[in-house]
Design a protein around this nucleic acid. Structure first.
Lengths: 340, 340
DNA sequence: CTGTTAGCGCATTCAT
DNA sequence: ATGAATGCGCTAACAG
């Protein structure tokens, strides 16, 4: 095996023309006699020619590829982001490099650097731990970057994000309206912007209502198991501080919420009668737990789609002059089911 | 922005040497005075040099990249496969191209072709609908391919698969042992090898025991919602054929099982008292449903890891002569929880 | 309409 | 130990 790939030179020789002519024929550039064009295409087909995007990339300085970095490929939230990005890039003939960097800024940067070495035309980084730090890394090469759900103080980059604060706030308002008064927050230590915003909403909203905000604990990550394992300690905390159980728990996301719900049930507590539980994201399984999970729906897929669209648009514009980075905000919706 | 990237020529000029010298210095090839080497490295560092893997790929004919094609990125089963593959490739300095091809053989081939155009060093395809069809596509270029969970009659390619038949069979034996007699199968029309094997195990095992195999239905895909929506029709079928409800349901996978379980509960049936339910895969959430799901654990992550390892080994061997394609079988384990 | 020449950035001979 | 020349496969000038 490992026969030599056929190149445009091979075709040129077989067709009795020069390689640039083959190149033009293949790409439909410049006018030429239909006869020779047809013949060249025919021969290329017969010889099983596949253009080398590597060589093409070297000369055109465009690889028609995009690099995507997420925190965790297996997290349903990121899965949908990836899916959205892939859908758009694939439709435009771009290839997608995927990398993960679980809660590790160094790893994230290494990933991006490696993509830059591969001359990706653009980058998408979700939940970046670096943010504007990319300014220094990217300014020399000018590769466009779109951030997803990353907090930046005066973003130098285009960014897509979901309005977590507003979402979380509405969830809290709903709980309060339902008469819940002792509302604990079960967070996620390793999340960046998302955790910050959601927790802040929890805190400020409760404070506005004069409700206590002293029972909260962060899971080490956002796995179901984490929520399950951490919840008992949250209850202990409530018992110690309040002298009684919480009547509602707001979780960082659906996974944590599902784990928490199971742990509550294990302790003989009824959801939502004894304690209400709310998640975040509205992953598919949220509608099928027992009780079904009330949560906040985040348009995950669309966010991926949009990020890719913004990036590809940037690539079209061929530096029409530096447009100011835009921030695109997505808002979700409250999904009330049985758990709250 | 978009400043020119710095190349080894730039460094050479700045250091007062020739570019080949820079190339050698950077890669530690060939001996040279420590003084100049140090100076070159220093300058490269200062100028922010990043080697162009595109140019390198063109001359070495190796891109240090791998293409991975899966059916559905968001399916927890594939997510873990991707994660396993990514983990290994990343550790070896390879970059990963990811593509999806949901139940579409043409799309799958297009994806692979596009990766070939990018000169990936190797390919991994999960649940391929094409199988040995790749022989014709790959023989000209000699790019190694590792298949995951793909049925092939005398495989021309290395392949990793899980012994679905044995797993499914053991699940069935357990159900029978528990006294279940009317066991229905809720499948997935769009799955390839996995569906075939699991269903075959259901059928033959029941036949051996003289139990009926006439109640079965396939979901259009393996989403939870599909299981939920299809289950009622399965019950109708049972009612029509047997005149009574099944006492056990074996689902294609955990997602379908979770949907089915919910649908059963909606109909007022108790799981497992009235009807037992078994899934397949042991995805994370399976341990947290109500009741918790009995299932068959498939080492998904390891399968991805192994596929990548096999592929990378193939790449090391530099065609030491064509080793016969090996098939690596994984076996899982029965996970008994509350649902069966 | 087509062929000639050149060069993308790098690694690899071969000289020296 | 280092420099000069060559080519990977392709596109992009410019001639003719």
């Amino acid at each position: 095996m490992n026969r030599k790939r056929v190149s445009i030179k091979d075709i040129a020789q077989a067709a009795g023309v020069s390689h640039p002519t083959v190149s033009r024929a293949l790409r439909g550039k410049g006018r030429m006699s239909d006869a020779t064009r047809a013949r060249i295409l025919q021969i290329a087909e017969e010889m099983g020619y596949t253009p080398s995007l590597v060589a093409r990339g070297l000369v055109t300085q465009r690889t028609e590829s995009v690099g995507l970095v997420v925190a965790d490929i297996a997290d349903p939230f990121y899965s949908e982001i990836i899916k959205g990005v892939e859908q758009v890039t694939q439709a435009s003939g771009f290839s997608l490099f995927l990398g993960s960097a679980i809660d590790d800024a160094d790893q994230e940067v290494r990933m991006v650097r490696s993509f830059l070495g591969r001359h990706v035309d653009g980058l998408i980084v979700s939940s970046s731990l670096v943010g504007n730090g990319y300014q220094a890394i990217l300014e020399d090469v000018g590769t466009p970057l779109v951030l997803i759900n990353t907090h930046v103080d005066g973003s130098q980059f285009h960014s897509i994000y979901h309005q977590d604060f507003q979402g979380s706030q509405q969830m809290l308002r709903h709980l309060i309206q339902q008469g819940r008064r002792r509302i604990a927050y079960l967070g996620n230590r390793s999340a960046g912007r998302a955790q910050t915003e959601r927790k802040r909403a929890w805190q400020t909203t409760l404070e506005q209502e004069g409700l206590p905000t002293d029972v909260t604990l962060d899971c080490p990550n956002s796995h179901i198991q984490s929520g399950f394992a951490t919840l008992p300690r949250l209850l202990e905390q409530a018992q110690r501080i309040w002298g009684e159980m919480p009547d509602a728990i707001v979780a960082y996301n659906d996974l944590v919420a599902i784990g928490a719900m199971k742990a509550l049930q294990r302790q003989g507590l009824r959801v939502p009668d004894d304690v209400a539980v709310m998640g975040f994201d509205d992953i598919e399984v949220a509608a099928f737990t027992s009780p079904t999970l009330s949560t906040w729906r985040q348009p995950r897929r669309e966010m991926g789609v949009r990020a890719a669209e913004v990036l590809l648009t940037l690539l079209q514009e061929e530096r029409d002059g530096e447009e100011p980075p835009q921030e695109i905000a997505f808002s979700g919706e409250l999904v009330l089911r049985e758990s709250a």
